[in-house]
Amino acid sequence: MGNQADRWLLTPIRGLGRVPLSVISNMGRMGIFLVQALFFTFAPPLKFFRLLKQIKFIGFDSLLVIVLTGAFTGMVLGFQGFYTLSRVGSTALLGPMVALALLRELGPVMAALMVTGRAGSAVTAELGIMRITEQIDALEILGLSPFRYLVVPNLLAALICLPLLTAIFNVIGILGGYLIGCKLLGVNGGTYFGSMSDYMGMKDVLIGLYKSICFGGIIAWVCCHKGYTAGFGAEGVSKATTQAVVLSSVLILVCDYLLTSVLF
């Protein structure tokens, strides 16, 4: 009776510790994974053709979704910015407002979220399937490092592609804002573009660049780790893919806040 009461009392208390312990051990595993990935990134040889393939997959193949989301984000900013600025009679500042919002904040974050959904999830699924079908073990048996073949190309490709995709997102977004602000709502085109250079500096461009590089690293790190450590069967891969997208997205937003507060 006493033992049973102990069990009823102690089990929930023990359970309380299980969650933080699991979180901490997962963080530790992810940290070790990152260190290994960085080690192989700087240890030659680099698998150049695999890197090119991943640049095409993560970068070029994401162009359509980046252009579409960039255009619509810019157009929404055009409407909302015009509405807000017209209340204080400053519609001439629509250009800098759209550009600043995109370059400093929306461009890097939106592009990163889009790449997470399109390419990050696919990378996780690919590595997960390779894990459950023992293809990763096969690489190891051949005396080849799976990190060099599978993780490093994804990491480098994401670090290269994210800033470029973000730049494209920003340009398309600014053009979208121009389309709505100038062509639809009647803001002067010269003012739209001209005032940008008055209110923006290199720092704004660099903040966006730093963010996009960090987000690229986060996407590759999280998505590769989740795929590499996927559980058994189709369920394991599906779980890993969901976790990769959710964790990447959350980390992107957390990192965005931290970088914004540091680089403000």
């Binding site: 399937i129 079908t133 023992e134 293809q135 073990d137 096969a138 190891e140 048996i141 051949l142 005396g143």
Partner: peptide
């Protein structure tokens, strides 16, 4: 490991 050969249950061919 280069001296090892391993025939996996499902082949583990790179698909």
């Amino acid at each position: 490991r280069s001296r090892f050969g391993f025939l996996f249950q499902n082949g583990a061919l790179f698909d």
